[in-house]
Design a protein around this nucleic acid. Structure first.
Lengths: 104, 104
DNA sequence: AGGTTATATAATACAATCGTTATATAAACA
DNA sequence: TGTTTATATAACGATTGTATTATATAACCT
């Protein structure tokens, strides 16, 4: 049961990281394309340090990767994260369902 | 963007409910079969009121359904919950990967 | 070198979460 | 009716999460 407990703990940790609206929105944007910190600072109604902290949590858990280019730090989703597939499923589940075609 | 924000909020609320080890374990068990409160009280090293509170959160959000039978209350996963498919994906992601057969 | 821009960290306050113990309710049973 | 069993609620405390402001660091530009 230790094996199972670890899996539950890992999953609950992972889901905890996704269970914040700001972080989910960050990931939703990163799913579309790379963004720098300043994009998110503009985007949200919270302080720059608050944004920085959210990004740090996602980075520390390897859900996102960073790349410095001159003075900007760009973030992107890490496709090699163990739960990457699940992340995509969750992000897709937030998209609007496709509008069905009338008469193909 | 209001539409999107709502979707993000709903999802983060949903994931918050799943981001607790005890609740994930409860759901993992309910995925196998119905359980009564007393099963969970035996199973975990927390008090009966603590178990009751976790079940209340899952019930209030309609992730699980309850059924009273004599003095026991039985819980089961609600297959009609809007995020039911996602829940199953998450529960399955916690299972051990199948051991590949050597030479079929 | 000094100023500006981009980002991170520290200190702190507040709110949310999760546990506990004590108590209430509801059904079963003697 | 009184007791036992199953479950829920209330009150409270400890821990964690998330925000803020102030400050530090790092890169770039005169």
């Amino acid at each position: 049961m230790i094996e199972t407990t670890n899996r539950v703990d890992e999953m609950s940790q992972f889901l905890k990281l996704l269970s914040d609206g700001t972080r989910l929105e960050i990931l939703r944007r990163l799913h579309v394309r790379e963004h720098c910190v300043c994009d998110f600072v503009e985007m949200f109604d919270i302080s720059q340090p608050a944004v920085s902290r959210h990004l740090k949590l996602l980075r520390q858990s390897q859900i996102i990767l960073e790349r410095r280019e001159r003075q900007w730090i760009h973030f992107r989703i890490n496709p090699d994260h163990p739960q990457h597939d699940l992340l995509l499923t969750i992000l897709n589940a937030m998209e609007l369902p496709a509008i069905p075609n009338k008469s193909c």
